[in-house]
Amino acid sequence: MLELRGIGKRLGDRAVLEAVSFDVAAGEVVAIIGASGSGKSTLLSLLTGALRPDAGEVVFSGAPVPQRDRPFAYMPQRDALLPWRTVVGNAAIGLEVQGVPRREARRRAAALLEPFGLAGAERRYPRQLSGGMRQRVSFLRAVVQDRPILLLDEPFGALDAITRDELQRWLLDMWASAGWTIVCVTHDIREAVRLADRVLVLPSAAGGQIREVAVPRDIPRGDGILTDPRVPRLEARLHELLRAASAPS
């Protein structure tokens, strides 16, 4: 579904990304990890169109992705909810920006409140929501846009451990029923193993090689993830690759 072909990007006099190539299949969850400064956020900015690559191209379903009308819905690390808008108003804003009339945008958002655990909260304002509920609104704002690919930037990084665990489970349940295609940037190796079919490790130095670790889908992603003997081996391998990617060349 998605291909990155030889992507390069410089910020000032520094090459942040160089010759980055990978693909994402339909219905797949791909997690991207890397040391600070490896270009994870820059990569998402290139996909959303906030930045343009200096080299290479992004291809969706065999055709180059246009600068406008891109096939991605983006969920930022912070929920970025507008304090003067209700739950429904915040969830609908992405559609409104795309030109969908306000009433229709809010109707579409309201129709998804129940599966997102937000039924009954449609008239609440962000200050009246828990951190977990705010993240659900942010996720709904992305999903309701009905784009083929979801881009998640540290989606649960700002939450406490219990809420993060709860939302990871919820996301996996939603993914199982909806079949979304997801690219998720995270700094949490356990989260990457729990959520993803594949984990990509970005090199710290531009031009380095992206390393990939496949996560067997039969690994239990609930409580069983703590007892499956393959999980610590996968995490150890990812730690090893991160250390190697961060080592001076």
Rank of each mutant, 00 (worst) to 15 (best):
R164S: 05
V183E: 00
E154W: 11
A161T: 09
L152N: 01
I182Q: 04
L159S: 05
L150E: 11
V185W: 08
T186D: 10
I149Q: 09
P155L: 13
W170S: 07
C184D: 00
E166M: 09
T186K: 09
T163D: 04
G179P: 00
R164F: 04
M174F: 09
L150W: 03
I162L: 12
P155F: 08
R164Y: 09
T163H: 13
G179F: 13
L171G: 11
L159R: 07
P155C: 05
I162Y: 12
I182L: 03
W175K: 11
P155K: 06
L171R: 15
D160V: 00
D173G: 15
R169M: 15
D165F: 08
D160C: 10
R169V: 12
L159T: 04
A161Q: 10
M174C: 10
F156G: 06
S177V: 12
L152S: 02
A176G: 14
L167W: 01
R164T: 09
L172F: 14
R169F: 15
G179L: 04
I149A: 03
W175A: 12
F156A: 14
T186N: 10
E154M: 07
T163L: 06
W175T: 07
D173F: 12
E154P: 14
L151T: 01
T181H: 00
V185C: 11
A161G: 15
M174W: 14
A158Q: 09
A158K: 02
T163R: 06
A178E: 08
D165V: 02
S177A: 12
I162E: 03
L159M: 10
Q168L: 10
E166T: 11
I182G: 04
Q168P: 11
G179R: 08
V185Y: 01
G157Q: 08
W175Y: 07
R164C: 01
W170R: 14
A161E: 12
A176D: 04
C184R: 03
W170T: 07
V183I: 07
Q168C: 12
V185G: 07
P155H: 04
G179E: 00
G157D: 15
E166Q: 15
L172R: 14
W180M: 02
A178V: 05
L152G: 02
Q168Y: 09
P155G: 09
L152I: 14
D165G: 13
P155E: 06
V183W: 00
G157V: 01
L167P: 03
P155D: 04
G157Y: 15
M174K: 14
